[in-house]
């Protein structure tokens, strides 16, 4: 027998059945290889469907399964844990011709992916509001807020976050998928075991991004006001703390 069974087997599953001829050939080989071909494709498709439930709600299981098979050819899984498989799917959808008439689909996938990130992130206690008692406006430059490990957020050029929210169970998906023109952001928080999400504006998004980049509270607040002049920062701040978006108030060194 020649060497390289494993590579030849994968070539045969990929369609080059002659590659496996020293070990098996004929109709029984074709039938058996078809089983492995189907199981492997189903494994990647099931993993992707589990990862992108909002996309599945829009396009249905059959469409998503077909997309998953095509996606897996370009981006096969790299680890045996499929919990984090699908990072490239949102971007890939923008290149997938059958998705061309659903320009919002890639953003829904990106939001599903952020949800997965929040779901799997490390545990940590959320920052208690009482910890903020020592803060005064004058001390903002000396402190920074550390994001909770599960906090995930992103901004979009349109209303994809509101559309994503409207598609969440247990309610029925909306009959018309309306995409607003105004830019929106979405933040996911997981202070305990349950994930919560809320649509946010450009100022809140900039504040979170500043905190995530390690900026002082003063600098993050400046970013927020620059992005959204007139923003009521104290309300935004209190709301994020109450939601569990942070884990620690740290003195800047």
């Amino acid at each position: 027998m020649p060497d390289g069974f494993h590579d030849r087997f994968l070539a045969a599953v990929g369609g080059d059945e002659a590659a496996l001829a020293p070990w098996c050939a004929g109709p029984a080989a074709s039938a058996g290889l078809a089983v492995y071909r189907n199981t492997t494709a189903k494994g990647a498709a099931d993993a992707l469907a589990a990862q992108f439930p909002t996309v599945e709600r829009v396009v249905g299981p059959a469409w998503l399964a077909a997309a998953a098979v095509a996606h897996a050819a370009d981006h096969p899984p790299r680890t045996a844990s499929l919990l984090t498989y699908g990072e490239a799917f949102g971007g890939w959808l923008t290149t997938f011709p059958p998705a061309a008439d659903m320009p919002f689909l890639a953003d829904l996938a990106r939001l599903d992916w952020l949800w997965t990130g929040a779901h799997l992130a490390a545990d940590a206690p959320p920052l208690e509001a009482t910890a903020l008692a020592r803060l005064t406006p004058e001390s903002f430059a000396r402190y920074r807020l550390v994001l909770h490990p599960a906090t995930r957020f992103a901004g979009f050029d349109d209303g994809a976050p509101s559309l994503w929210q409207a598609l969440q169970p247990p309610g029925d998906p909306p009959a018309d998928l309306e995409l607003g023109d105004a830019p929106e952001g979405l933040v996911f928080v997981r202070p305990g075991l349950d994930i919560d999400h809320r649509v946010i504006g450009a100022g809140t998004l900039a504040f979170l991004a500043g905190c995530g980049a390690g900026e002082s509270l003063a600098a993050a607040a400046m970013d927020a006001l620059a992005a959204e002049p007139g923003l009521d920062l104290s309300t935004v701040f209190a709301g994020l703390v109450a939601a569990g978006a942070f884990t620690e108030l740290r003195t800047l060194s």
């Binding site: 069974f5 994968l10 599953v13 492995y36 492997t40 790299r78 680890t79």
Partner: peptide, 19 residues
């Protein structure tokens, strides 16, 4: 069985010649 080859994962339990 096997499922990893050169850093790519095939989500299945694949056969081999039992040499």
């Amino acid at each position: 069985a096997w499922s990893m080859r050169r850093g790519v994962y095939a989500p299945d339990l694949l056969p081999f010649p039992r040499t």
